[in-house]
Write a protein that binds this DNA or RNA. Sequence first.
DNA 1: CTTAACTTGGACACTGTTGTCCAAATTAAT
DNA 2: ATTAATTTGGACAACAGTGTCCAAGTTAAG
Lengths: 200, 200
Amino acid sequence: MSSVEPRRRADAERNIAAIIRVASDLFGRGQSPSMAEVAGAAGVRRATLYGHFPSREELIDAVITHAITHTDETLTALALDRDPADVALERLVRTSWPILDRFRRLRTAALAELGSERLRRHHDRTLHHVDQLIRRGQDDGLFRTDLPLDWLVTTFYAVLHAAADEADAGRISPSAAPDLLTRTVLSLLTLRRDDLPEDT
Amino acid sequence: MSSVEPRRRADAERNIAAIIRVASDLFGRGQSPSMAEVAGAAGVRRATLYGHFPSREELIDAVITHAITHTDETLTALALDRDPADVALERLVRTSWPILDRFRRLRTAALAELGSERLRRHHDRTLHHVDQLIRRGQDDGLFRTDLPLDWLVTTFYAVLHAAADEADAGRISPSAAPDLLTRTVLSLLTLRRDDLPEDT
DNA sequence: CTTAACTTGGACACTGTTGTCCAAATTAAT
DNA sequence: ATTAATTTGGACAACAGTGTCCAAGTTAAG
């Protein structure tokens, strides 16, 4: 991205970080905050915000870029290509589903405001993690193949999203969510077998 | 609602109908059209629109009311309380899932613009249909009970919504959607020995 | 055909948002 | 302690949306 670091002062660095942090949060909540709201939440004047991000578009772009990096790191650390696919999936859901959901919402917001063109450049390696995991599960005979991969991925995210909505609305407790989600997602993806051995 | 019919002229009646029709469509698509857009799409001047609906809020209110009536009629005609719950559910999904989804989006839009207070008066008898159907399925031992009813209802709608999004985006063909949906929803709701709670 | 209802076209005030600009104050770095 | 980067406070223009108003034109209904 930038080979030339313009030697920024520490307070500028701090403000930029704060702005991206709160903006990620606000946009990730599915809202569409004004620049004034972002600036206010970051404890900064509007002029400062515009000093760092010349336009709303560039702000969103920066937020997306940051989120991709962060999400990708998290998912990579989860080593989703290890262990049987259903085990890896459970690990993913139990520990990181809010991250996945936030990234999804951010992406939706960005899609609405930037259009699909500007978003395509960020070639979604984040979403690819899940894609590959589910495909692996299918290949290994753990996940169902009577429904197309794309559709399975879609429903997976749909359920995550629903859980996040319910949690936000306080209709399910954050502590109950992982269990609910894990069971739902696994029973959605795994092969139907009525002959399950009882070992757990 | 209205015991006093104000003796409207025929063209006014026509315009009101057109406005509600296009507004339902625009809001039901998940967009948030301006009054000008609604008026334009209805083939009417803004002044006329405001003549019938004094404010944006009242327009949305009218659209919601209309949608509830229409949706409720459709669902009632489906006689969801007849046949085994899974059969009734398949009937519902195969024939009327777009209606259900449109109503959901409308409700979301209204929630965002009117707030939850003004929306509570429309006491959601529409959503109740599905609620009762799934409960009946649980009571009859056809649907799983290892997940709470509310959560099952939520995921049901989440999957419908996802299908609608995919269809809108052209990623699944409208002809393939009912099959995909039916299979997904049924395998999500129906009982399987796999999902029995570990202990107890 | 006449009246009353309705629509039109356009103007207007008001609000919220984006984006720009600048002089003065503050703060980090050397 | 000096310099240069950065923030501040506020003003400003431009634009889009809501809601109001009205005089003149059109249309349905008796």
